[in-house]
Amino acid sequence: MREINSIYIIDDDPITVFGIKKMLGSVVHGGVVHSFANGKLAIDAIRDTTSKNAEIPEVIFLDINMPIMDGWQFLEEFIQLSLPQKVRINIITSSIDSADIEKWEHYRLRSKHVITFNNKPIKKEKIDRITKVA
């Protein structure tokens, strides 16, 4: 069990959100877990937080296919934010499309943040491994 102050889950599928939350319960303690149904809601929340000098998430679980703003669009905007600390972003997707892997590489190399690519289904052990401060 480790301590993480703030975790974001960005996914439009309530079952996935439920699953990640449930697994996180046995991996971390304390801290707050926020979930957002699309990238737009999440980036707005992050902008809001930084403007209030409040704590930004240390770990983000990010889905790719979402309405309004998808995972890539979120990343595009996120890496342009000038954040002082590194954030760990775990992409969680059922996509095995090579185009998505390429996009991940693209963002990974352009960003100071730690970005990982994880295929569904996610097991508890995996959550344990990828839920840590970057």
Binding site: G19, S94, D97, P121
Partner: peptide
Amino acid sequence: AHIVSHNLRSHSANFSMLLDF
């Protein structure tokens, strides 16, 4: 094919996860 695979995979992933729980 991608749509099919993606959609079916996401559903089956959910099944797998929920059943595991």
